[in-house]
Design a protein around this nucleic acid. Structure first.
Lengths: 282, 282
DNA sequence: ATGGGCGATACCCTCAAGGTATCGTCGCGC
DNA sequence: GCGCGACGATACCTTGAGGGTATCGCCCAT
């Protein structure tokens, strides 16, 4: 199977529409139709059900969509890592560390400092990512290490070491009635009519429906809380970034959040190993 | 990058010889040379150093060899799993479980029984593998689950659950002086001049050099031990397969062996999940 | 009934991938 | 020191896979 075929199939499987998929791929629709049916013939499996008015995935098609995405990621990763390995020879080596913007900043600062003072350390490029984006960077080889948060991020297929486990707190506007409490239940904050949870853009850039305000950045979000428009449930360490307008109250029954350092399997990079070791020593 | 290019590069990188690689790929040498230099141009990186008498990998080339193998495995896995998903619809579904021939047979029997009695269980095809082979089957999608043994098998990039941790014993011919001992040190058995460790064929089918006898199967191996030609260091549970000719003596300082059940990341198979759950209940 | 949306088919064209012949270079043996 | 042989690169040709345009067939909505 060629990666071109996989890319074609993934495009159709995602769009569920040959015309749009072809447009996205920058080719005409007929060659795309042919490529897909050829792929189906070679695999000996129906991947799509063409229902004259709509296209749907078959069981096998759903499998190929998942596995194919992973395979395309792996190919892309091979390409990126090779390019970066070549760069490292003709000049300064560097590692790319992906981290969620605004999360674990204290831990990150300590890590960077600890690593930088090690002998043989290289430059660390920090990539500040939106939610879920870091995982993608790791899997496609655009990043070498990442700071992830279990159970929010999907760790399957990545090698990880746990760094820190902590509870979660609710971030509330100063003066809100709940700020007088010493602790809260999760159920008390998720369904507050006066403070609906904010909505984040999905991977396609659109917002889910709901009552909460649309958020783009952490600073904007904190401002929205201060204005009494929403609230937030975050790991304990985020307290350090609060100002006087905001109050944190522990939520006793929220799932624990584990901050992990993650890297792609089979990583042969000395720098990645050093970074992980530095992180474990913190 | 197309998988064809990757296959070409991996072939050359493994053979370190354009002619042989071309032969292996079933094409002529000139198009291969061209394909590789084209790949190098597109990546903007030298992958091979052509030293007029020999071909060697550059730093970037070594990275691409590793990552490229993983990517090719992922593509192959996508193909296999799709085919099997299609088969599962048109007839009986099944899972392929890979296990090392002759290892953990008791645990395996219990697992298969426990799973078979579960509601909704499907047929389990057991693939008996040579050393290291199971991992490959998993990564290339020809198997869905595997029983692996840490630290012998490489678990990076696989999801695992631990099933059993045990010490190791030396398997000696009955009557050997060491069989009178209640326990042994690892150093006492690895360098015995009268009982050299056996040699297993590598992935290429050839045997490494050394004094020990060449082994092909476990039964053959046990016979070789009984004949006083070699000895073996294996996990404790292998004792159950011994007959009167053989004696097991614990080795106190051998690394502990953990038997794990492993499956590829992102597995969406119900049967795999059920198998893992059954294994954990043992 | 009919027009429009959508995937499949028919047919053509182009270029990239593969083949053959040959060159350039470098060890090595006589 | 010379020529031979091994090996990768280059030159040039051929073919077919992949892409484009035009059009069909089918179904649903109006």
């Amino acid at each position: 199977m060629e990666t071109r075929e996989l890319r074609y199939f993934v495009a159709v499987a995602e769009e569920l529409h040959f015309g749009r998929a072809a447009q996205r791929l920058g080719i005409a629709q007929p060659p795309l139709s042919r490529a897909i049916s050829q792929l189906e013939r070679r695999l000996g499996a129906a991947l799509l059900k063409r229902d004259s008015r709509s296209v749907t995935l078959t069981e096998a098609g759903a499998v190929l969509l998942h596995e194919g995405r992973a395979a395309l990621d792996a190919v892309e990763a091979a390409e990126h890592r090779t390019r970066r390995a070549a760069l490292a020879v003709t000049g300064r080596a560097s590692v790319v560390l992906a981290t969620k913007a605004g999360a674990s900043s204290e831990l990150l600062a300590k890590l960077l400092h600890a690593y930088a003072t090690e002998p043989g350390s290289v430059d660390v490029d920090v990539a500040l990512c939106g939610p879920g984006e870091q995982e993608r960077l790791l899997r496609t080889g655009r990043a070498d290490v990442a700071i992830l948060h279990h159970p929010f991020d999907d760790l399957t297929g990545l090698d990880t070491e746990e760094l820190l486990t902590e509870g979660q707190v609710a971030i509330l506007p100063a003066g809100h009635p709940l700020t007088t409490r010493r602790s809260l239940q999760l159920s008390e904050v998720t369904e507050l009519p006066d403070l609906p949870l904010p909505r984040w853009p999905g991977n396609d850039g659109t917002y889910p429906d709901g009552p909460g305000p649309e958020a783009q950045s952490h600073t904007q979000l904190f401002q929205l809380i201060a204005l009494g428009r929403t609230l937030l449930v975050v790991p304990d360490s985020a307290r350090s970034q609060l100002n006087d307008d905001l109050v944190a109250v522990p939520i006793v029954d929220a799932p624990e959040v584990t901050t992990v350092i993650a890297w792609p399997p089979h990583s042969r990079s000395r720098a990645v190993a050093d970074l992980v070791r530095a992180a474990l020593r913190l």
